[in-house]
Design a binder for these strands. Structure first.
Lengths: 248, 248
DNA sequence: GGTATCGCTTGATATGGGTCAATTTGCGCG
DNA sequence: CGCGCAAATTGACCCATATCAAGCGATACC
């Protein structure tokens, strides 16, 4: 199977574009064949719960298309989103018996699943695979820590600006575009989902978006399509380092 | 070298007590010998910066004794703690050229360091080591996500109660004690550090601790020594699930 | 022994964002 | 084309936490 024919979201190596990230067909043809044998596809409709906190997880998976969220919930219903799963993202931790949070489909999604046991067995034997997963997990950890700064110390306005600039950048990286100057993209989340992500209420999200629009930091076409006339301005509003440098 | 003679904080296997966590002398004597050859010790005084965001990191390390914190900082000085390094915790991610945050010694600390390059080379060859690091990183990720819920959705009182119960449990696990009923421990952090951890101001931390004391949830001897008459009560105040179950 | 300092506590006041409630917008569907 | 409903907006009010400020107690240092 040629590298370019791989289904979107297939596990591939670190040299490939962002959407393919764990084991490379070119680098490891034998391993890829083995992965092919233990994989299957599952699809879920928007709103469906893919994994419930406490579930026995019998598979690990990579998102092929669509968007899902990881959420933590308190007994009284307060919820906090703790991660966003976009195409190519991996879910289901090898070695974990149970899930610690809910995975909920935001749009219809398709996932490429691997049965847990054979996947873990394979990981035992192939350092390359364990290392790729380690890299991906470290990336997630960095993102989670960045998010902790946002949740703990940023104002509502900065939180919104941060979220917009992150979505803009992920969008740009998928389309292989630079994320500077004027940019347009669709919001893949409702106001409520944004609020859960940012530790705010949906009313505050709405008010801050209106404020940014009123002040010309963003333009809105409909409720979901955003145009940012000047990414630098948005990054400034987000309170991020002006050098934009992602260290680490 | 007998297993029990290993210096506190040495990398060991998953079957060992919490303080020894990456590679096991009994399981992998050869590898341990190799690790022995590339390791050295470094100590830092309280307040010293061990690693500065943006640093080229030439080593990875495991905390042997003392406490350090991971912090993120914004340009205007707002800081958010994003991790706590206790004895046995690992820092310096293989494959990362630069640090993404500051590591600051809270007390005098001793670290067991491994030169980066040989460590990574060794990881290439030993699936066991990469897998142990993956496990540890997944644990950290779970903790980070738990923390995101706290930062985004908990009240000041719940935040304080959560922090106290986490410290109590870590303390108990180090001393191999159960973490139920009546417990005593020392706070390893100043009020300001607690505030940075919780996304609060130090005044609010102080007020909430006073309130918990006034209401009998905790007792204080001096400013740092805490006694919890009833862990269940504290957990209730923390807003955590009453079943106490750590799923995942 | 006196005093400067640091960590902490407590009080008074200000304010950002939450809460509750009323509309408005926009989209799917008969 | 208009109905119905969910999502989003906007307003009024309130409260939890931040901010600013004063004072306390222990420890270190001359």
């Amino acid at each position: 199977m040629a590298h370019d024919d791989l289904p979107h979201g297939t596990l591939t190596c670190g040299e490939c574009p962002i959407r393919h990230r764990a084991v490379c067909a070119r680098c490891e043809p034998t391993e890829l064949g083995e992965l092919e044998r233990i994989k299957y596809y599952r699809s879920f409709e928007a709103g469906q719960t893919v994994i419930w906190a406490g579930d026995q997880m019998d598979f690990v998976a990579s998102v092929v298309s669509g968007i899902a969220t990881l959420t933590q919930t308190m007994e009284d219903g307060r919820t906090q989103m703790v991660g966003l799963l976009l195409p190519s993202d991996f879910v289901g931790r090898p070695g974990r018996a149970r899930a610690a949070y809910n995975v909920i489909a935001t749009t219809d999604i398709l996932m490429c699943c691997f049965r847990r046991k054979p996947f873990e067995d394979m990981m035992e034997r192939t350092p390359h695979l364990a290392q790729r997963l380690l890299q991906m997990t470290l990336d997630e950890l960095d993102a989670a820590r960045e998010w902790m700064l946002l949740l703990g110390r940023k104002t509502a306005r900065e939180k919104i600006a941060s979220l917009l600039s992150i979505i803009a950048r992920r969008d740009a990286s998928v389309n292989m575009m630079p994320s500077i100057g004027r940019m347009s993209f669709d919001l893949p989340l409702t106001r409520e989902a944004m609020a859960d992500y940012l530790g705010l209420t949906l009313e505050t999200v709405s008010r801050q978006i209106s404020a940014l629009k009123r002040e010309g930091v963003i333009e809105l076409a409909g409720k979901r399509h955003v145009t940012v006339p000047d990414m630098d301005r948005l990054m400034f509003e987000a309170g991020d380092d002006s050098d934009g440098g992602l260290v680490g």
